[in-house]
Computed example of a mutant assay.
Amino acid sequence: MSPSKPTSSGRTLTPWYGALVLLGALFWAAYTFFVHTKLGQWIDEAALLGGEAFLAADKTRRPALAFLDYMPAASALLAGGFILFALLRRRDFLRPAVAGLLLLGATGTTQLLKHVLLTRPDLNISAASVNSFPSGHTTFAAAAMAAIFIVVPVTHRPPVALLGWAYAALAGASTLVLGWHRPGDVIAAYLVVAWWSVAAGLFLRHAHGSEVDRRKHSAAPRSLSERMLGFLAWAGAVAVAAAMGLALLLPHPVIGTVGDRSLFLFLAVGLALVLGTAMVVGWLVFELFARYGSPIRRRLVRGMK
């Protein structure tokens, strides 16, 4: 009797391709709404003005500013350290290369989109007409954490995913607090990094052949980190839906005449959108790797599919 063949790759690859399409569509929807519609620009600008009005005190801004000042260097050192460890100690050459390409691809994509491909029309909402979509700082923070996620052992991925996307959420919220970026810019950064993370996982899935045993994954008890990721994703989805509903229901007068109470509400809306999106996107990436990712192997499978 011939040995059993691995499960057909077609069905297990479909979620990866579906996620790439979904994330691309969500990015385009976010760009269209937050940048090319008056309502989207108004919500984005009101959240930014709310941060400037209520979180402009030195005691509030100083921690956020300090975090963003050190964040690029800290992120680069963390990601570089983990990639180097995987390369030298574990002699794993493929995953460090993929992680490095993920980091470069995500940050390069953001810069290309922001400075070359995408534009911000002047809809008489904001005095700033220069495109800031997506956020570069947020992209770098999230991409560095995604690179670490790629190279760590499978058993360590749940806490790395939890801490990494919490770090990315904090980076995005800090850019809003400081008035560097609008919520839409931060959301776009998360989607760019998630897209590149999924692309990296799909490449590894092709390179390493057979997938993780989904039955074993579903039967195994969930760790505390996995349960927390699931809870935060659920709470984040509720927060995003509630924030968007509130933003659409509230009045939208001329942006310069918005009162303090409304600015505070739109600041809360912006923070909910930023933090909620980070948790939902982080959970999506983690679940794809956990359910359909490939086991870590030192060598490629012969004849990549």
Score class of each variant (00 low, 15 high):
L250F: 04
S9A: 09
M145C: 15
G184E: 02
G18N: 02
R89W: 12
Y17P: 00
L78A: 08
V258Q: 08
V192L: 04
L202T: 05
A141T: 03
R11W: 10
A64C: 11
S8C: 09
V240W: 00
L123K: 11
L101A: 15
G259W: 03
L248I: 12
R205N: 07
T12G: 07
A237F: 11
L112C: 05
G230T: 10
L249D: 09
M304E: 12
A79Q: 02
A242C: 11
L232P: 04
M279V: 05
S174P: 02
M1D: 10
W196S: 05
T277D: 01
G256K: 06
L13G: 03
A57C: 05
G184V: 05
W195I: 00
S126M: 01
V98S: 04
L112V: 12
V160C: 03
L250T: 07
H217R: 13
A239W: 01
R214V: 10
S210H: 06
Y167H: 12
A142G: 04
M244N: 00
V274E: 02
S8E: 14
A86S: 15
I255P: 08
G172N: 10
P15I: 05
V130R: 13
A147N: 07
L84D: 07
F54N: 02
L39Y: 04
Y70A: 13
G105K: 10
V154D: 12
A47K: 03
K216E: 15
G18C: 10
L163A: 15
R95W: 03
A169F: 01
R299W: 12
A128C: 06
N131V: 00
T139R: 07
Y31C: 00
L77P: 05
E287Q: 13
A74N: 03
A30I: 02
K5Y: 08
L224W: 12
R297S: 13
S75R: 02
A128G: 05
G209K: 06
P183N: 06
S129M: 05
S218H: 11
F82P: 03
G293V: 01
L112P: 02
H181Q: 11
A233Y: 02
A141E: 05
G179V: 09
T37W: 01
I255H: 08
H115C: 03
P183F: 04
L250H: 07
F203K: 04
G51M: 00
M145Q: 08
F289V: 13
A143I: 06
G236A: 06
R157I: 01
T60G: 08
S126F: 09
A290Q: 12
L78T: 13
V238F: 07
A76G: 03
F289M: 10
E52V: 08
T12W: 08
R120M: 05
Q111E: 14
V269L: 07
G108R: 07
S225F: 11
A86Q: 13
I296E: 13
A143G: 09
L163Y: 01
G164L: 11
L13A: 02
T7H: 10
G303S: 10
V152D: 09
P134I: 07
A97L: 15
G230F: 00
P96D: 01
L104T: 11
G136K: 04
V281E: 02
T175A: 09
Q41K: 08
A219K: 11
T12A: 09
K59S: 13
G172E: 08
V280H: 02
P295T: 11
T12Q: 13
R298G: 14
A142C: 08
V152P: 09
T14V: 14
